[in-house]
Design a protein around this nucleic acid. Structure first.
Lengths: 332, 332
DNA sequence: TTGAAAGCGTTACCAT
DNA sequence: ATGGTAACGCTTTCAA
């Protein structure tokens, strides 16, 4: 009851494999009678083409790879899910890998994928990826690549949100709501995503003639712990902020918990805005005012850009998916 | 600058492929000199064995498949992440597929994986999977299979938590805390997971000599909407429950929101316990008393059971991972 | 309409 | 120590 091959079918029927091959794929040049016999035997024995033989023959695997910092993080999980479903629609399989948000690991993941002969790779860079040689190497070997969520100043197609603008909107809202001291919680300074969001924040401060205070900006590697510690530092200084904008979901959650731990109320004592998945924003209390990112669209677009490259288009595309600031209960 | 094969190396060096093959794998029978030359050329040109050729040769793919109801659901995302990392440790790749919690789709996913010649499959059944022919077919073709989270009464290795017992513990706690009418929110009755958890719940009621009321038990397909609607029904009846046990994360969230929408307080007016990921339990307000499931252990064990089968062990194993009820702020 | 053979990249076996 | 060759499953080209 094991898998049957074309050769076996051919032998069983006393014909040649090439005839079987043609029949199975519905090509011309097989008599109706023979075709019937072949098809029914194939069906009966559950024939499936061996994808490895096919891959070997065509040097095409119909497989793409995805690298994310953390598959279990809601934001990425949703994007990955969409990439997978888009890919499947057009017959591509996905290999999902998790870099643990470490550049070192990211390199391994990419290596693995290249080894597997994936036809293209979609990547969200690790937060400590500051050198892009491994990415550019992919270009050298003509591997189609798309970056998403976190990109870099290199010549590679990418899908990101309007980082600066969304932070600008959020900060405007906080200031217009009466905030006097708005703090910014971000990832590593070298991360383009962080610096873009920070620029939006600073731009808003400038336009409102606010003094820009260094002690209101805390950027460090993204983790719950760092977010918590940084928020406490903010809260414990003489002139504490009355609003915080957290540029990552983990940081937003950590900030809320830190605020709670100091016995402060949101939004009465301090307002907060996060870049957060809508699902979580809704379930926390108070519901978090947040920058809504359309993960489905991000995933969709990322795959589309990759597909374009798979189909032979060679131009670099940078897609901006618009994210909008949405007001909930954590701001006034 | 494209990939180089053994044959090309052989030609470049004027030797035979079989020699190259031996050298590359560190086998005997190649002179030091030649080996050096081969190795350095291979390194220089970035030689990688073609996994498809290898698979074809050995009929072994070093790949396993995973089927989950929803990869973007935190609980599954964490389990999948662990399965993937365990698999990678021993050189296996993972193909993750998403059934959308639909049996129909689950069949497609399995089909796809079989097609890909994965060496084994780890599955969390869809909630509407009541017929297990497609699973048993896998057994027939000698495909190693492990079920997790939701299993079935079929002869297949599985990893689940102590469903009945954990529900029993949770219900006990609610009753001991003074609850008079404890309601149960579950998935489809035909789902073994639901019926097991319900049994634990009923057992506790019985032991406390509580009347078992049918209007306190709402079982229907799992979704946020159904959970919300069912909770409202519970709340709106003359004798509303003063405690709810929700046997799925989605149902727990929906119940909290429904309770909030009726202006009731948790836990003062009504207590609630959920089967929930610890991360979410902590961020909601009030923090949710929940049954803590060790996703890492579930993922680990699931892969281990599969690995045993891959390594030729043929016995069926049913592993129970202990989950414990933990008290937070949603119960008194 | 059907068959034969080469080739994809690798490995195993046998011959030199 | 090295070479030659068949085989894995499939497709393609050419010949019958």
């Amino acid at each position: 009851m094991k898998r049957i091959s074309q050769r076996e079918i051919a032998n069983l029927l006393g014909v040649n494999v090439s005839t079987v091959s043609r029949a199975l794929r519905g090509l011309e040049g097989v008599s109706q009678q023979l075709r019937q016999k072949i098809m029914s035997l194939a069906k009966e024995r559950g024939y499936r083409p061996n994808p490895f033989a096919v891959s070997l023959r065509y040097d095409t695997t119909r497989t793409i790879g995805v690298v994310v910092p953390d598959v279990s993080f809601s934001h990425y999980a949703h994007i990955v899910k969409r990439i997978e479903s888009e890919a499947r629609k057009v017959g591509y399989m996905c290999i999902i890998t998790d870099s643990g948000d470490k550049c070192e690991n990211e390199k391994h993941c990419i290596d693995l994928l290249v080894n597997m002969h994936v036809e293209g790779i979609i990547i969200c860079l690790a937060q400590d990826t500051v050198d892009f040689q491994h990415i550019q190497h992919l270009k050298k070997i003509h591997m189609p690549v798309v970056l998403f969520d976190r990109d870099a100043d290199i010549d590679i197609s990418s899908v990101v949100i309007n980082d600066a603008d969304s932070a600008y909107q959020a900060t405007n809202y906080l200031i217009d709501g009466g905030a006097r001291r708005v703090a910014f919680l971000g990832g590593p300074n070298k991360m383009k995503q962080t610096s873009n969001r920070k620029h939006g924040y600073l731009e808003s401060l400038r336009q409102h003639d606010y003094v820009i205070r260094k002690d209101m900006v805390k950027c460090s590697p993204i983790s719950y712990e760092s977010g918590f510690a940084n928020t406490l530092e903010l809260l414990d200084q003489p002139e504490a902020p009355d609003a915080i904008i957290a540029s990552h979901g983990l940081l937003a959650m950590a900030a809320m918990k830190a605020i709670e731990s100091r016995g402060l109320r949101i939004p009465e004592d301090i307002a907060i805005v996060g870049y957060m998945s809508d699902w979580i924003s809704e379930v926390v209390t108070p519901r978090l005012s947040f920058v809504r990112q359309n993960q489905k669209e991000i995933g969709c677009k990322a795959f589309k850009l990759l597909k374009d490259q798979l189909d032979g288009e060679s131009c670099i595309n940078h897609v901006i998916v618009n994210a909008f600031f949405e007001v909930r209960d954590s701001t006034r």
